[in-house]
């Protein structure tokens, strides 16, 4: 839950599901796209989230902050899905010796931060999207992801360090390969 029950909120008109979906679809879709890195996957993520939100719409509206509630649902859905994918990948490796697919990066992508973002762990990526796109504070991110503030800082710091290291590595490699 993202609600702070210790503070009184001004009473907001309760939107219907249709009103909410119409109004927030674009915003949720864009966040979902940034989380998944893929437009189709992003659309799936929003759809799955809103279907679940419809199912418990009373609960969503009772929270008093439907957008924050649904955003949290979407992040949970995203992280759960990433866990399932990880498990499926593990299953693929079971019982057979398969050659791991070799990812050959496009040289033009080497410095592309978007590509490097895809290499982060799901929680790290979620923290960065919430921090640098949604502009949430560390406390707000901690609430949304049900983590401590310290853990959020740790994820953010690790993610940024990892991106810097990969950027530096890619740059060095590119310099080495460029003809003199």
């Amino acid at each position: 839950m993202t609600t702070d029950r210790t503070k009184k909120r001004p009473r907001q008109p309760v939107p219907s599901f249709d009103e909410f979906a119409q109004a927030r679809w674009s915003v949720l879709y864009r966040t979902a796209y940034l989380l998944t890195g893929d437009r189709d996957a992003g659309q799936d993520l929003v759809q799955d989230t809103l279907i679940k939100a419809f199912k418990r719409w009373d609960q969503v509206t009772r929270s008093g902050v439907p957008e924050a509630y649904v955003r949290k649902m979407m992040l949970n859905e995203y992280l759960d899905d990433q866990r399932r994918r990880g498990r499926r990948a593990l299953k693929d490796r079971l019982l057979s010796v398969r050659e791991e697919p070799t990812i050959v990066p496009d040289p033009t992508d080497r410095l592309d931060l978007w590509v490097l973002l895809a290499t982060l762990a799901p929680r790290e990526r979620a923290v960065l999207v919430l921090r640098y796109y949604e502009d949430l504070t560390e406390d707000q991110i901690a609430t949304v992801l049900s983590l401590s503030r310290g853990t959020v800082k740790s994820y953010a710091s690790t993610a940024l360090r990892s991106l810097r290291a990969r950027q530096a590595s890619a740059t060095a490699e590119q310099v080495r390969e460029e003809p003199r």
């Binding site: 599901f17 979906a21 759809q47 279907i51």
Partner: peptide
């Protein structure tokens, strides 16, 4: 990222 149209009918049916 241009959002696709809201599939409101599908969301309601699947949600229901």
């Amino acid at each position: 990222a241009q959002p696709p149209p809201v599939p409101l009918g599908m969301l309601r049916r699947e949600g229901q």
